[in-house]
Design a protein around this nucleic acid. Structure first.
Length: 107
DNA sequence: TCACTGACAAGGG
DNA sequence: ACCCTTGCCAGTG
């Protein structure tokens, strides 16, 4: 498999997200200039088994842990975020604007 | 080949 | 301010 699928493109960006920071689906899609926000979430759905992809650092534009239901256990996403110093309340990232990390900024 | 799916985002009522 | 509809596009059956 010499060619990277769209999944791997997303995984690569997610891996670049530093601990204690979060990003959104739309941001990744915009950064890749490919696909859409829905695809990013869909790609992450297949990430389990694709290696160590910190999918818990990816949230929706509201800062909500929309993908927590896909973790096992579902609370694992919040556990991971809190382990990195991110506070989560009511399934939402506290001070999401501050913790937001833009891949384009790192670039 | 065609149709449906999906962890979202933005706009309109 | 909230709820609903539309658009998005690669992958799978």
């Amino acid at each position: 498999m010499p060619k990277e699928s769209y999944f791997e493109q997303v995984y690569d960006v997610v891996r670049c997200v530093p601990p204690g920071r979060v990003t959104t689906y739309g941001t990744i899609a915009s950064f890749l200039s490919l696909g859409s926000a829905r695809m990013v979430g869909w790609a992450l759905n297949h990430c389990f088994g694709a290696g160590d992809v910190p999918a818990h650092r990816v949230v929706n534009r509201n800062g909500e842990l929309s993908g927590r239901a896909h973790f096992r256990p579902p609370s694992l996403m919040q556990e991971r975020l809190e382990a990195e110093g991110i506070k989560v309340e009511d399934d939402k990232v506290v001070e999401f604007d501050k913790l937001f990390w833009n891949p384009a900024d790192h670039f």
